[in-house]
Simulated assay, not measured.
Amino acid sequence: MTTTTDLAVNLLDAKSLISSVGTVGLLAIIFAETGLLIGFFLPGDSLLILGGVAASSAASKAFGAGVQMPIAALLIGAPLCAIAGAQLGHLLGAKVGGRLFDKPDSKIFKREYVVKAEEYFTKFGPEKAVVMARFIPIVRTFLNPVAGTLEMPARTFFIWNAVGGVIWTEAMLCIGYFFGDSMAPVIDKYLIPAMALIILLSISPILIEVLRDRKKRKAGGAAYAAEAEAADALQGGRHRRG
């Protein structure tokens, strides 16, 4: 018998999910993770990668007999569900964003999630933030309603949401599909380190932007100091001439 505890653990275990929910369940989870705030804890990245493995020739080696997902259905369905989920999140933010986020912390909801999503949105600009957030767990869930709350136009959001959704889902699926044979024997041991590496690589554009911003600030501060120093020197020279 499956207990509540087992179900909770399975929801956090991408390999267990692949073995139990099938293609339709995988697509539903991708929709929930990107569209429903309560889905932020779901393992979207690793689920897509393992979905790719489950569609490859290594499926039985990785998950046992009887597990084989159709790659065409995943390549078409995953981006559609990711895009639709994010659009729902944007709509919720536009309609009830203020009331949605104006509540105290609970076991599931943490205001820091919203604050972090707002920081990405304002720091990198709406378009870039929508695309990059796809590769960052939790942020990709909360940024969509934040975009709606901050009144990002629905048409603009849809365009960049589609770009990010396609790149994210297809990249993760293809990693699993094309490297399934290499990953199958070591999935249990190396999945978490591999996901950490993938997330690190995916957020590298953000890290680059942060470093550039810091350099600009330092350069701006140095330029300001040089101008002030020159002004002081000029003012001192005038006093001496006087």
Rank of each mutant, 00 (worst) to 15 (best):
1 M>R: 12
2 T>F: 14
4 T>N: 14
5 T>S: 13
6 D>Q: 11
7 L>C: 14
8 A>W: 14
9 V>H: 15
10 N>Y: 13
15 K>A: 14
15 K>P: 07
20 S>L: 15
26 L>K: 08
28 A>F: 08
30 I>A: 01
32 A>D: 09
35 G>N: 14
41 F>D: 05
42 L>G: 01
42 L>R: 02
43 P>T: 04
44 G>I: 05
45 D>N: 07
47 L>R: 09
48 L>G: 10
49 I>G: 00
49 I>L: 10
51 G>T: 03
52 G>N: 02
56 S>E: 04
56 S>L: 06
60 S>I: 03
63 F>E: 00
66 G>I: 05
69 M>T: 13
69 M>N: 12
71 I>W: 15
72 A>Y: 03
75 L>I: 02
82 A>P: 13
83 I>Y: 06
83 I>K: 06
90 H>A: 12
91 L>W: 15
97 G>K: 10
97 G>M: 10
98 G>E: 15
100 L>P: 14
101 F>R: 12
102 D>T: 12
104 P>N: 10
106 S>G: 14
108 I>R: 02
115 V>T: 12
115 V>L: 02
116 K>D: 08
116 K>G: 09
116 K>F: 12
126 P>L: 03
128 K>C: 05
129 A>M: 03
132 M>I: 03
136 I>L: 07
137 P>A: 07
138 I>H: 04
139 V>F: 10
139 V>A: 04
142 F>R: 08
143 L>E: 02
143 L>S: 06
146 V>R: 11
148 G>R: 09
148 G>F: 09
149 T>D: 15
149 T>E: 14
150 L>C: 12
152 M>W: 11
156 T>I: 11
157 F>K: 08
161 N>E: 08
165 G>A: 06
167 I>K: 00
170 E>T: 07
171 A>K: 01
172 M>Y: 00
174 C>N: 03
174 C>H: 01
179 F>D: 00
182 S>C: 03
191 L>Y: 10
192 I>L: 11
194 A>L: 13
196 A>Q: 11
197 L>W: 13
197 L>M: 09
199 I>F: 02
204 S>Q: 07
204 S>N: 01
205 P>E: 00
206 I>V: 05
208 I>E: 00
209 E>S: 05
210 V>I: 08
217 R>F: 07
220 G>A: 05
224 Y>I: 04
225 A>T: 04
225 A>H: 11
228 A>H: 08
228 A>Y: 06
230 A>L: 12
235 Q>H: 10
239 H>K: 03
242 G>T: 08
